[in-house]
Design a binder for these strands. Structure first.
Lengths: 332, 332
DNA sequence: GTGAGAATTGACAGCGCTGTCAGCCTTGCG
DNA sequence: CGCAAGGCTGACAGCGCTGTCAATTCTCAC
């Protein structure tokens, strides 16, 4: 049989309530009692029942990770971060995919209401769904938005796309590049504009012109990267010496085109991407890119929900990205 | 205020118990009553409390997905499948990563014991950890192993690696290839041997010789694929016309080498991989590969845990893979 | 000493649901 | 018509824990 709190109480010679206090780190328990209870609990391998706890305290010790069809690796890293934080506080993470496309936004209410989670982490693109955000507000469920375009009144975690693009461009300039091509992301995606802005800022700061013929459209896909690269590289006498793609897939497209044109990367053409997807390390040469703090965003989001200490945390958290310099830009 | 079962009972003019019966699809409720209760429940937006349910019925309606550091996309698809099945039965999926490397196997007991899940899905490489499997058995927690090397006495879901490799090889032979190179996987991985066996069977079945110089070592990494490809392709007068790599990363390595050697894929060299990772679709040309039924394995595993109907299901479930024929082998 | 106040502890109710069991009301058949 | 067998329903206890509040003990300034 499973040991209950009563067993521990009896064995330790205290009341259930005291055991409860010890296990929840509540104040007002003598140190000696505390130690004794902890000992007994360990010896009996006692572990409290989530359900009973939840029922009595109307907390579930569950945090929901709500996502749509974002990329597996993105979600995976958010997960990992969230779990890390949750473990520390005895919480668990449950998964609740909601597909806007399949019109599941309406079900969100039932799904989220039923389980009664203590908090919800909303990942993009759901972090910008008014409907879901409304539901959460109406159900009065604490939530944190991951990388929303528009934080609104909810707490959120994000990174500074603009600054990342700026720094990456600065790095390229530092490597001696003055003529840099830039491949835009999908026009519907907010990050596209932010990354472009960062790129342009760095150029301007260093007195380099912003040339329209060096900024070409893309849509985050490998194929669009190929097309953009062809546009940027087709004229041998008028080529940028570096190409900064708004994400890794497109950068991979650039590398592939360079290969077919017999342009050595990075000697004749430096290439960098954005996001640090798994692809960046598989590619050859390995891709210089910007690592989003995905793991950290997951962790931070969970912490905000789980850590009751800070009663009034700042609403918006901007986390540090990292420039990952690899072989595709590094001259030996 | 949250609506409780009492509210519904009062409104529908029946007892709590009857409401409970309706909501749990138990027998012995008149159809009229059933309909009425359902109506009221919907109107009141009632959704039962997991915690209370769990406490009363000593079930948690939670299935744990336990994984180590497997690839994000693998876990993601298992997840998706498991969630699909769980939703149907009102269950939820919680995540419990356990790192053998960090010696967390001991914690497994506490982690799994505390939360009191109704079932556990163990993914590789954890599905072969004796320690974890023991813990589960001792805690008497129902569990399903995903793709274990050695199923033991626990139910499991898996695919037939050997047959997949055989069929892929058959396909290549059907395309007219008689001289096919094969790149082995990591020697520690059980799938490596199974895939090799399938490859050889197909050759033998068609009366083609098994040439040792056509079977080269690898370790599932892109880099090892590159090295293997160099070995297989370096002699222009003695080259296979197709290369079957034991996974997609290595196949990508082959494609990359072919590119540098100016060997057209698939015209001069057919290439295929295994696993259907995201990479396979990003690559250019897109990669012919074997799609593991990862999603299905997740779904099936969850079903086995959640569906109480089948009292005595078969222990081992072999799910269907799919040959994904793409451009890297297809002649126009 | 002594009383006020703080620290520590325990008794008890009840969180929202389901399992058990008893009771009623049909139905069908001799 | 009587009775057994089932279908349908509800009363009630209690799952294992925590919140509330009261009781007890300890501390320390005066």
């Amino acid at each position: 049989m499973k040991t209950t709190i009563t067993d521990v109480a009896k064995e330790a010679g205290v009341s259930m309530k005291t055991v409860s206090r010890v296990l929840n780190n509540e104040p007002n328990v003598a140190q000696a009692t505390r130690d004794r209870v902890r000992d007994v609990a360990r010896r009996l391998q006692y572990s409290p029942s989530l359900a009973a706890r939840g029922l009595a305290s109307s907390r579930s010790y569950l945090i929901a990770l709500v996502y749509d069809t974002a990329s597996p690796s993105y979600i995976f890293h958010i997960q990992a971060g969230a779990i890390e934080a949750c473990r520390k506080y005895g919480y668990h993470v449950v998964l609740e995919p909601i597909s806007l496309e399949r019109g599941e936004a309406d079900e969100a209410e039932r799904i989220l209401g039923r389980i009664g989670v203590d908090g919800v982490i909303l990942t993009p693109p759901l972090s910008d769904s008014e409907q879901i955000r409304d539901t959460l507000r109406r159900l009065n469920i604490p939530h944190v938005l991951v990388a929303p375009e528009e934080p609104g009144h909810s707490p959120s975690v994000r990174m500074d796309d603009t600054d990342a693009a700026r720094q990456m461009t600065e790095y390229l300039i530092g490597q001696g590049h003055t003529d840099i091509g830039f491949i835009l992301g999908h026009p519907d995606h907010g990050a596209t504009e932010r990354r472009r802005k960062g790129f342009e800022r760095a150029l301007t700061a260093h007195g380099h012109p912003i040339r329209d013929d060096r900024i070409v459209p893309g849509d985050f896909s490998f194929r669009s990267g190929v097309e953009a690269a062809v546009r940027l590289l087709s004229d041998p006498r008028n080529r940028p010496t570096a190409i900064f793609a708004s994400n890794d897939d497109m950068a991979a497209g650039v590398v592939s085109v360079a290969g077919r044109m017999n342009l050595a990367v990075p000697e004749e053409l430096a290439v960098c991407g954005f996001d640090d997807t798994p692809l960046a390390q598989i590619l050859w040469p390995k891709l210089t890119t910007v690592a989003q703090p995905i793991h950290d965003m997951g962790r931070k989001a969970a912490e905000l929900l789980v850590d009751r200490h800070k009663s009034d945390p700042p609403m918006q958290h901007t986390l540090d990205f990292e420039l990952v310099i690899r072989e595709s830009t590094r001259l030996a």
